[in-house]
Design a binder for these strands. Structure first.
Length: 677
DNA sequence: ATGGGTCCT
DNA sequence: AGGACCC
């Protein structure tokens, strides 16, 4: 494998058909239901994330087949293992049979993964001014980079496209990267014809289509961010670039490990629908197993003849009907879908929502996540030996409660500031033994206990597609002592068990005193209330984004005057209108409030440091400084961890074990020592 | 399968 | 309190 990110093939922009400009006019009068190609959305999926976290902590494992185990299955495995026949979600025994020298690491403690995910997310949040960044699970992110892309489009110089500069910040013109605006970075879908390269004129022609230009810019931004994730943090990723979340995510899977794909509308053809048509409906994000099987059963009632057997002799997945199958069904419509899916408790606009998804329309916003999670839960399963007696249950509740209290302190508190005496010597020399003072960022109002009975035991029904047997839960207000930071976790946890979890447990299992056959316990805190604090870290959120979007606009107006790129523009000097006179350059309607909203609090322009929610992590500060640091090329030191490009990487020796570890991985490595390996 | 999360009813 | 969705 060559260096995929660095050497990612760039694709020449195909020549633009005549009607590009006309198409832009259509966008002008979009109503809310229209295509909605006025946003630019990136989706990144870190490649085999859990395995990458382990590899970064133990670089020697990079070249070995590695699997990450949770209970009896592999949650994931690295690509070395995949070439040896190991697959995700494979039982450990089967994986070892396929690959006898497989290295299996336990991944049941999610702390290292959560931590790595948060550091990558923090980087992405600070990397593009004005962007919103949403995490999906631990290993995926969406970014809405519309503001930055629109800004950069305005600055393109049509006479020097090959030497373009992408600005990541409007206020710091130095922050950014160079790129070749006559090409897309990475792959495009559909792949361009092998026809003439059209070097001359291709750049000029393409500028007529605002959607295409935005996607081209976004492809370079995505390539840059993925390169930073890889070079600075050690994580490769797959990227998708499109105009909404569902398309960005879907197209990101087209070129899977360590690459990216831009979904490119082709004038005069419905390539986006063709792209969707080939997918199984279950593969469309937002269409889950329940919805899929209801639709499948309705269109092709079980017991009838085999499903429409187009060209393929076999289905890729069992029960797989495609988007095309659904849309080609006689009289298919949003209303028909609504009827099919209508059942007690069904979502309100369900049919229309699915219809839109099947057409690649997705108006859902990229949500800027808050500083604090909205829920924290800890659970364990007891499939092999279900819980049946009170002492067993209490012991497990105690384990879970301890870990919950620890998680609450880790994720819901922040270092307390010394407001009274900033120049005090106390903060300078921290006594090593003492605990840092912390305060709550948000506190939960609700405590919930959930259980789930073992399915195999007492005659529970086992449907083939029963995804998870259902849980039952009870909740109550979280007792205030749970927020006492002055007591050890274990002590708080014990009291929580006695005074809250045990009563909840009794409420859950009222008839029986024992013999519940519990296969799962889950303890959860929810209903977080942000602590009204100083302005700098208000959990109300979003302040930074507003400020920065405003800066993009005003800076854009100023810089545009020097830009050779002036379109059909009538230059305006007012600061209250949108940035460009061209409709295609106007900010999307639903973002206008960002431009008009008043700035709040003491938001920091670079969006970075006030949001640190890492707890004891010295690594987050160092990660911050690493971001823009130049690699000093100190490569003559020993063994030499190298990335796959053969470039040397800054490294340190672990004080505990003597292992040489890349600098970016050191904090994760140390956490492994803390865990006791 | 796991050990998490989100939002909607 | 539970369901459906996501990883």
């Amino acid at each position: 494998m060559k260096s995929a990110v660095a050497a990612t093939v760039t694709t020449a922009l195909p020549a633009q058909p005549q009607h590009g400009a006309a198409r832009a006019k259509v966008g002008e009068e979009k109503n809310k239901e229209a295509d909605g190609d006025d946003r630019v959305i990136l989706h990144f999926d870190y490649d085999c994330f859990y395995a990458s976290v382990i590899e970064n902590a133990h670089p020697a494992l990079r070249t070995r087949p590695l699997g990450v185990r949770q209970k009896s299955i592999l949650a994931t495995c690295n690509y070395v293992a995949r070439t040896r026949g190991v697959r995700k979600l494979m039982p450990v025994a089967q994986a070892r049979a396929a690959c006898p020298d497989l290295v299996v690491v336990c991944g049941e403690d999610l702390a290292p993964f959560r931590d790595a995910s948060r550091r990558l997310w923090a980087f992405l949040r600070g990397a593009v001014a004005g962007a919103r960044t949403e995490r999906l699970g631990l290993d995926e992110v969406f970014l809405d980079v519309t503001a930055a892309v629109v800004y950069n489009r305005a600055l393109l110089n049509p006479n020097a496209l090959r030497d373009s500069f992408f600005h990541l910040s409007a206020e710091d013109p130095e922050r950014g990267f160079t790129f070749d605006a006559t090409r897309f970075a990475g792959c495009v879908h559909p792949p361009p014809d092998g026809q003439g390269e059209q070097h001359a004129g291709a750049g000029a022609a393409v500028l007529d289509d605002p959607v295409r230009v935005r996607l081209m810019l976004a492809s370079h931004l995505a390539g840059y961010l993925r390169r930073r994730l890889e070079e600075d943090f050690g994580y490769t990723s797959s990227g998708g670039i499109s105009t909404n979340k569902v398309l960005a995510k879907l197209v990101g899977s087209v070129n899977k490990p360590r690459n990216q794909t831009t979904l490119l509308p082709v004038q005069g053809e419905n390539t986006i629908q063709e792209f969707l048509d080939a997918h199984q409906i279950r593969e469309i994000p937002g269409i889950g197993s329940r919805t899929s099987s209801i639709i499948a059963d309705h269109l092709f009632p079980p017991g009838k003849a085999v499903r429409a057997g187009h060209q393929e002799p076999e289905q890729q997945t069992p029960s797989g009907i495609t988007v095309r199958d659904v849309l080609r069904y006689p009289d298919m419509s949003p209303a028909l879908l609504s009827r099919i899916l209508d059942r007690p408790g069904a979502e309100r606009g369900g049919g229309k929502k699915i219809w839109n998804l099947l057409h690649g329309r997705d108006a859902s916003e990229v949500k800027e996540a808050g500083v604090a999670p909205t829920q924290i839960s800890v659970e364990d399963t007891y499939m092999a030996r279900p819980l049946n007696t009170l002492p067993e249950a209490l012991r497990e509740l105690s384990v879970l409660a301890t870990s919950l209290v620890r998680r609450m302190r880790a994720d819901l508190t922040t270092a307390a500031e010394e407001l009274t005496d900033p120049s005090s010597a106390g903060s300078a020399g921290l006594p090593l033994g003492t605990q840092q003072k912390r305060r709550w960022l948000a506190y939960p109002k609700t405590l919930r206990l959930s259980t789930c009975a073992h399915p195999g035991k007492s005659g529970s029904v086992s449907s083939t597609s029963n995804p998870s047997f259902s849980r039952i839960s009870r909740s109550q207000p979280l007792p205030s002592f749970a927020l006492d930071l002055g007591r050890p976790c274990a002590e708080v946890a014990e009291r929580l068990v006695r005074e809250a979890l045990l009563p909840l447990f009794r409420r859950l299992h009222v008839g029986r005193a024992a013999g519940w056959n519990l296969a799962l316990l889950n303890v959860c805190v929810a209903n977080m209330v942000p602590v009204a604090g100083d302005g700098s870290s208000g959990s109300g959120g979003g302040a930074g984004g507003r400020d920065i979007s405003r800066m993009f606009r005003t800076q854009g107006e100023r810089l545009r005057e020097w830009s050779a790129w002036d379109d059909d523009a009538t230059t305006t000097t007012t600061t209250t209108t949108t940035m460009m006179s061209s409709p295609s350059l106007s900010p999307p309607r639903d973002r206008n409030d960002l431009f008009d909203g008043k700035a709040e609090g003491g938001a920091v322009a670079n969006g970075g440091s006030e949001e640190k929610n890492d707890v004891e992590d010295a690594g987050s500060a160092s990660a911050e400084t690493e971001l823009w640091a130049v690699d000093d090329g100190d490569s003559d030191s020993d063994v030499g961890w190298e990335d796959e490009d053969g470039d040397s990487v800054a490294q340190q020796r672990c004080a505990a074990c003597g292992h040489v570890v890349p600098t970016f991985a050191m904090s994760a490595h140390e956490r492994f020592h803390a865990m006791g390996d």
